[in-house]
Amino acid sequence: MIDATDAAPRPLIDTTARRRPIGLLLVAVPVFLVAWLVIWPIISAILRTVWRPDANGTVGFNLSSYVFFFSDRYSLDNLSVTLWTTITCAALLLLICLPISLYLRFSKGRLPDYVQAMAIFPMFVPSIILSYAFIRVLGPNGMVDILLNSVGLPKIRTPYLTPWGPVIGLVWDNIPLTVLILLSGLGNVANQAIEAARDVGANKLQVLWHIILPRISNSVLVALSFAVLGIFSAFTLPYLLGPASPEMMGPFMQRTFREVNDPLNAITQAVITFGFCIVFGLFYVRSVAHNQGK
């Protein structure tokens, strides 16, 4: 056997230095694109906000736009509503998606197929269509109000144009990705482990807490960091469903850039948004690295 492997013209996994250039060449294109379209704009944005001419025209190190952001009540309100929306959405996503994924993982038959289709469906709905559907259903005098009214119940307090509008929209929009990631994590939980725990008398909650959750904690982290990254910089749903003020960072940046004609402050807002996102991004990178290290 050993002879046969040695005699093969080329081993399946080639680790000789000779073949490395091709591998590097293959990753060069994506790396170049990321460097050009992502890394460079970030560096340029940071440089442009900290190294620029001051009021007298002398170019130098200047943090005034950041000082303005962090001393401006209005900007801070927008930042805090963005954080609040993100955290609320993440918590709700976990609360909604974990039971769905557990159900899908541990049941068999046709019904789970339908549930899965329902859970994945939001992935195929563009957010602008979702927004208008939301207004028609949950908006004032919308479908829910009409249904409630027909059975003599009072109208709901509509979440349209309040901070809860974007929360509901964003949670719905992020269900598919979260469910899919959690499901893949649950695939790693062996049935034998659960059966063994049951054999020694663990109840359902104990199985969840001691057997399942520790095994999928990585997936939970990945799912949450994906959702959080998307939600933090969301634009369409907060723009169409949220209140005029405070606004989330996405619409705030776009408005500062286009309507207020203030690129400097818009870039500053973008750098600060990026700073928060990189923290969540690090969670994701750490968990991936952790996984590969195993």
Binding site: T162, P243, A244, S245, R255, E259, V260, D262
Partner: peptide, 18 residues
């Protein structure tokens, strides 16, 4: 335009405790 767009958001939109 810029003054109105910025001023309205800062002064009118957040004034009410909703």
């Amino acid at each position: 335009d810029a003054a109105i767009n910025d001023g309205w958001y800062r002064n009118v939109a957040p004034n009410v405790d909703r």
